[in-house]
Design a binder for these strands. Structure first.
Lengths: 99, 99
DNA sequence: CTGTATCCTGTTAGATACTG
DNA sequence: CAGTATCTAACAGGATACAG
């Protein structure tokens, strides 16, 4: 459990997983879509997701360079769970101290 | 999404939610079952979970004092999702750099 | 028994500039 | 275009002692 949270628990990881979804997405697209993340952090999180077998990184030896990210089969299995988490959250009652 | 992760994303929150489950659990039971958490952090996390409407805190004016925690209806809705996350994690492939 | 109050540390992420 | 390097700030969490 703790480990599962570590895998998806970074500040940006769930957002990145959603953004990649079932598509192939380039580094620049991610940086643009998730426009508040710094490139340094984006690189770090993607590297961790790759090490955890969630995303697959594919680099093309072109000019200009192109790198595509996509979810692995294991990573795709996460999508419906995160969607449920989203739905659960949107149905949540207002916070106690909310204005 | 970011908000949902904030709600369940603490280091101990998912574990606490699981530990409470469908029961009423006393503070000391939680501290004992999750025996690596400090009381300070336990108090903090429970307070946040309470503010987010996940757990309900009930204090009894007895000696010695007794405080029971249980999941709200909203909190109970989280259990199956966390269970799925657990199952997903236990089916995960070995890490790339694993020994 | 159930917390608070301090103090301290490691981790995480953001800003900025530079590279192949 | 897709990163790295470096520095800094903020925060979460732990150790310990004390309180109602």
């Amino acid at each position: 459990m703790t480990r599962a949270m570590g895998v998806v628990g970074g500040k940006w990881k769930p957002i990145l997983i959603f953004t990649i979804g079932a598509k192939r997405v380039r580094f620049g697209q991610l940086a643009h879509t998730v426009n508040l993340i710094s490139r340094k952090v984006l690189t770090e999180q993607l590297k961790e997701l790759e090490e955890d077998g969630i995303v697959i990184r594919e680099a093309f030896a072109e000019l200009p360079p192109r790198v595509e990210y996509r979810l692995s089969a294991h990573g795709l299995g996460l999508l419906p769970i995160l969607e449920q988490l989203c739905q659960w959250n949107s149905a949540r009652p207002p916070a106690v101290g909310a204005p």
